[in-house]
Design a protein around this nucleic acid. Structure first.
Lengths: 341, 341
DNA sequence: ACTCTATGCAAAATCGATTTGGCACCACAA
DNA sequence: TTGTGGTGCCAAATCGATTTTGCATAGAGT
């Protein structure tokens, strides 16, 4: 490994090709008027020298960083890994990266930001905040710096804001509930969590409306968002005490806890209890029994979020909010109830 | 939302504070000689205007991007999500982001790169490639551009390379095997996958040595790395045909497949078969039964990788390779065999 | 032959921050 | 008074690419 020689500059390419820096720039950016032969020669030299334009210089000139930031959800630190341990977020991330790349943007992944200065440091054109809390301080930081920002999920404290992309949690909930009812469930409960994300808020509201409309007793249990393993067990216990015959449980970690609780009580799924989870994952597919899940379409969500952010950066009016349609993935955990016939 | 006024430049701060740009720069970077009163006034003005240094200009001057890239593993596209659907990678990513941030580096997440030009576009000082394949083309791209690169996991085709960080897969394997033997297992098998990562290669080699040393029959089955759900089922079937009483299975998705196969054959874990997986995860903790797993310490791995990369960027000699010690997390899936007494 | 236009290329300005070198001023000593 | 050293601040050079402007030259049109 030789002591890496300094990177070639545009000047070096120009000299080696016997032309001006201007011409090299024109060739590399497909602009200006350059003879085909010169063009080819310059391109060849640039390739041979391994020339790579300095993106700082380029960005300085063009006034854009061509870089956007991604901020993953923050919750109680201990809980973060549990909550994010679902491949939805992995898939979302990969798809945001890919979508940004296709739009010629680099994707900076940011850690939880503590102070405004933390954000100042980065050379970005805008950011995507995933699962904002009410009046999320991270969104406020972007606003404060005049940086464009969009969210994946809605800030439930700011109904006027339009710059968001979110899966249709309410529709997803109704689809699940109808599916459970069609499978024969009478006492349909919901197991949620006390985190103020629009995903949960919308699901709970839809559940309330659905039970009211169908004249069913609402059975909603919320888990505390800390010490997740134990709070899942505790909440699952409270829920089972209500003796439901079907449950819609949005987050995967709660579904896992609920399944464990049913096993401990000797209940069978789907025999005694139908269970549907609100996000698809490898865990849902391979659990025993396989869990009926809602496909939140992380790929499309990612693409729309990147597109919306770029719109905002370029000052175009919001074609927003953007609601992503969901689909139900029925699996064995909600197989039709027959024993009640 | 007003049409966001242009960001203040250092010039605006200088004018508003009645000093030169030089002085503003000195204040903001804690350099030079500036009277305390002036210093305070400039700082106040900068804060009030929401001044944020243009990182392109700064980077241009300093010659560094203060940005490093992270490249996640690539495998057959269909399989990627299955393989990465384990919180190890999520945790690794978050920790790399955090570690980079603490070292004043921004973290660019890159998509799978197809061409050299894909990499040229980004303004980075170096990169971290996770789970390199033999003679990994992504590593080659970095080399080709003279960009510092380190890997998490070793390129098994380049034994001379030192710029890597990896969990001690061999030691982890021996620990697991000893643990299984201590629990009473006689016929210890290994279920691996045909992917040429050092994690698997080292584990298989350690397994071969261990069986030879203990005079046990080696029972190694490799799954094909495509169509993961079906190939897991197929490989698990082949393995169970060998009638082992314990299995070490590094990847989580294979362990999931193996558990399903045991259920279908009416085998109980740990009653008839001890199972240990090679990476810890939420799935391993919450599966039924909970799976004994190897803690690969993604937090430390991430930190060491970032540190090693910065060393290389700054031209320091490699304090490398860096082998991360592992620990075993015994759970119910390897509870001691008593029925054989 | 003589203008006119299009073409190929280059010189110089520009983006915004950092850094070097130096000027003016003051206090103090010789 | 004159030097000496330290302090506080600023002008200008600099980083590397892009873009504007301009200047030759060649070829076309009259």
């Amino acid at each position: 490994m030789q002591p890496s020689r300094p990177r070639p500059r545009i000047r070096d390419v120009a000299r080696a090709a016997g032309v001006s820096e201007t011409t090299v720039s024109h060739v590399l950016n497909n602009k200006g008027r350059v003879e085909a032969a010169t063009r080819a020669r310059v391109a060849e030299v640039a390739e041979r020298l391994g020339y790579r334009p300095n993106s700082n210089a380029r960005g300085l000139r063009s006034g854009r960083a061509d870089t956007i930031a991604l901020l993953m959800p923050i919750v109680d630190l201990d809980a973060t890994h549990h909550i994010l341990a679902v491949d939805f977020y992995l898939s979302l991330t990969m798809n945001v990266v890919e979508a940004a790349f296709e739009r010629d943007q680099a994707l900076l992944q940011l850690p939880p930001l503590r102070r405004l200065d933390d954000l100042r440091r980065f050379g970005i054109d805008g950011g995507i905040v995933v699962d904002p809390l009410p009046s999320d301080p991270r969104v406020a930081m972007f606003d404060r710096l005049g940086l464009p920002v969009v969210t994946i999920g809605r800030d439930i404290a700011h109904p006027g804001d339009h710059w968001w992309v979110a899966a249709d949690s309410a529709a997803g909930t109704l689809t699940v509930l109808d599916h459970l009812a069609a499978a024969g469930a009478r006492r349909v409960a919901m197991l949620s969590v006390d985190i103020e994300w629009s995903w949960f808020a919308d699901a709970e509201r839809a559940y309330a409306e659905w039970t009211a409309r169908h004249g069913r007793p609402p059975m909603l249990v919320r888990a505390r968002p800390d010490k997740l393993d134990s709070s899942a067990a505790e909440a699952a216990g409270r829920l089972l005490d209500l003796e439901p015959d079907a449950v819609y449980v949005p987050p995967q970690w709660l579904a896992t806890g609920l399944l464990r609780a049913t096993r401990e009580r000797g209940l069978s799924v789907p025999g005694d209890l139908l269970v549907s989870v609100g996000v698809d994952s490898h865990q849902a597919r391979t659990s025993e029994p396989a869990l009926t899940a809602v496909d939140l379409d992380p790929a499309r969500t990612a693409r729309e979020a990147v597109d919306l952010l770029i719109s905002r950066i370029e000052g175009r009016p919001p074609q927003a909010p953007r609601v992503i349609p969901i689909t139900l993935l029925p699996r064995r955990s909600t197989a039709a109830i027959t024993r009640r016939a």
